Simulated scan of single mutants.
Amino acid sequence: MKRLILMCLALLCTAASASDHRESPAIQADPHADLTDFYAFLNPRDSSKLVLVMAVNPFQATVQEGAYHFTPDARYRFNIDNNGDAIADRVIDIRFGAYDTATHKQSYTARINNDISVTGLVTEGTRITREPNPPIITDGPQGIRTFAGTRDDPFFIDTVGVQRTFAGTGRFTATDALAGYNVSAIVIELPLSMVTAPRGTKLGLWASVDRKDNSRSQQAEIEQPATGERGEKFHQIQRLGNPAVKVIFIPDELKDLYNATRPHEKVAMWTNVLVNTLRAPQFSLKESEVQRLAGLFAPDMLHIDLSKPIKFPNGRWLDDDSIDIIFTSNLDTDLPILYRRGELDGVNHNDVPFSNDFPYLAPPHQAP
């Protein structure tokens, strides 16, 4: 029992930074490129459509709505591997124009597989009205739909309860620490046939953010810079597959390097890092469990097997309680430190309901 409580302490106190919100030293100073969450699921009304969601720019205060924008100096990317080699076979790049201070508008272009382009307008947050601006949804060819703009932060966890429970100064209270905060979200919906291999049913997916060289901060480089369609040189500074892997399992001094590498790069190194972390005495894990978890998270991609039900870790719905799923699969659910039997922190759903309609994330919160 003592070892399991220590395991909870070591893991959950690191998870208290809220999924991947400001999780690495370099990204804390670059919120426009800070990937907070990544989701991949099927349209709940049409299983032939894949939905991809990434969120950046965390902890947006409602009294500052209208002040959060996407940066033109970054390339936001969805990566899809359809043959199991952890290298992207299909990519969706989203680039943003400059924010127009006169019209309060910002445009974006989503380029799918270097072939199809969809151009739309960002849905800006507003303080002027009591209701948020309605989402600007752009319909492209072949059933593609796109959205970019301010939405409610979809992640949910009692981060304050995590800290106080293990510091001995309080307990879990089932309070969502991210309730009331907004993020900048990008949502793409497209036919599965655009990203799957012929007769293929398995996908590996992750999100990434690249900075142009002339705006790049000093940090570890990936092995080769990527070249954009305009001849620009980029370096990757963020990536996200499974939620909270960096936060929980990667030491702080290696997080920036992790963000700068792609899933197929330095796999042996990251596997060793994960194995060494999981073998720590306070974790008290069997070797078979160490190897299973290391194999799940390295290479770090969100996996989807279309022949099976889509629920984390097979894809990730917005309402999947992914942190509970990660921990309760490995911990004794009768531990007295849990909020209640089978629950980690008592926060089992988002503070506001999601939608069954595109763009699926809840509308942004408004200033009171």
Score class of each variant (00 low, 15 high):
Phe41Pro: 03
Val91Met: 08
Lys255Asp: 01
His69Thr: 07
Thr14Gln: 15
Phe234Lys: 02
Phe59Trp: 14
Pro363Ile: 08
Phe172His: 05
Ile326Gln: 04
Leu318Met: 01
Val352Thr: 08
Ser322Asp: 00
Ala167Trp: 11
Asp320Ala: 00
Arg211Val: 07
Pro135Gln: 06
Ile92Arg: 01
Gly231Val: 12
Gln291Phe: 10
Met301Leu: 13
Arg3Val: 10
Phe156Thr: 02
Asn314Arg: 06
Thr71Pro: 01
Asn330Ala: 14
Asp139Val: 13
Ser215Met: 12
Glu189Leu: 04
Arg127Val: 10
Thr169Ala: 12
Gln236Val: 05
Tyr339Trp: 06
Thr119Arg: 03
Lys255Val: 03
Tyr181Cys: 01
Asn79Phe: 02
Leu4Val: 10
Pro359Arg: 00
Pro31Thr: 11
Leu331Pro: 00
Ile112Asp: 00
Val122Gly: 04
Ala197Val: 06
Tyr68Thr: 09
Thr159Arg: 09
Val51Cys: 05
Ala110Leu: 06
Gln60Thr: 03
Thr173His: 11
Gly170Glu: 10
Phe249Ser: 04
Asp158Trp: 07
Leu240Ile: 11
Phe166Glu: 03
Leu35Val: 05
Pro58Leu: 11
Thr159Lys: 09
Arg127His: 07
Ala10Lys: 12
Glu343Gly: 03
Arg262Leu: 15
Ala16Gln: 12
Glu232Cys: 12
Thr36Lys: 00
Asp153Val: 03
Tyr181Gln: 04
Gly241Thr: 14
Phe41Ala: 00
Asp30Cys: 10
Gly143Gln: 07
Ala185Gln: 04
Thr196Gly: 02
Val267Ser: 09
Leu278Phe: 13
Asn242Ile: 05
Gly342Thr: 14
Thr14Asn: 15
Ala177Met: 01
Gln291Ile: 09
Ile188Asn: 00
Ala260Asn: 09
Thr119Glu: 05
Lys49Trp: 11
Thr196Asp: 01
Asp252Ala: 09
Ala362Asp: 07
Arg95Pro: 00
Phe327Lys: 00
Pro251Trp: 15
Val122Lys: 02
Leu12Val: 06
Ala220Gln: 11
Pro198His: 09
Met1Tyr: 07
Arg340Gly: 11
Gln28Pro: 09
Pro132Ser: 07
Ser208Ile: 06
Thr103Trp: 13
Glu265Val: 08
Ile116Val: 10
Pro353Ala: 10
Arg45Pro: 09
Phe312His: 01
Gly346Pro: 02
Asp158Gly: 07
Ala220Met: 12
